[in-house]
């Protein structure tokens, strides 16, 4: 990644403007939330609001800098990214988050495992989900049973360790 690989026509960089807007938005949230704080009357030379205001001001300056940089088109050139794998991985993470409490660690993580493999082009899911689940169960067994790490257990884990799924 190199700087200054600006395109000759120097059009404003749309994505960079969005980043600037996000930075300004973050600053606005910090300003707003900090102004809502009820300050205790105790002796404080530098109170709990000083740093938030300083950091928010810094973010505003950086947003301005980003706008300038976007106008000049001085952002590094971006690789052409394929978004489909991202949806698979993010989907896998969301799937795991939702499945953990109901299906347990092995199945939830098996889904994450399979979706990640899918993002890298390895399928089909009916094959990789069982592979992932077996792998995740082995990991769960070592950490939860062998090393007493507290990891969510579901019917599968209970069935395989105690003989009943309850």
């Amino acid at each position: 990644m190199t700087t200054g690989s600006s395109k000759p026509e120097r059009r404003p960089d749309g994505a960079a403007l969005v980043i600037a807007a996000i930075l300004a938005g973050l600053a606005a949230i910090i300003f707003w939330q900090t102004s809502q704080m009820r300050l205790p009357p105790i002796q404080q030379r530098v109170g709990p609001t000083v740093f938030p205001y300083v950091i928010a001001s810094g973010l505003v300056l950086l947003a301005i800098g980003t706008v300038v940089s976007a106008m000049r088109g001085s952002f590094p050139e971006r690789s052409k990214d394929d978004y489909k794998p991202i949806f698979w991985i993010v989907g896998g993470l969301i799937g795991q988050i939702l499945l953990l409490s109901t299906a347990g660690f092995s199945i939830g993580t098996g889904v994450l495992f399979a979706f990640t493999a899918k993002a890298f082009g390895r399928g089909p899911l009916w094959q990789t989900i069982p592979i992932g689940t077996v792998f995740a169960f082995a990991v769960w067994f070592i950490f939860a049973k062998g090393l007493q790490l507290s990891l969510p257990a579901g019917a599968l884990e209970r069935l395989l360790t105690t003989g009943t799924p309850f």
Partner: peptide, 16 residues
């Protein structure tokens, strides 16, 4: 595909 699937497994395991 196996390597990164494994990395995400352990990353979420550690966080959990």
């Amino acid at each position: 595909h196996w390597l990164y699937a494994g990395i995400l497994t352990f990353a979420t395991l550690g966080t959990l």
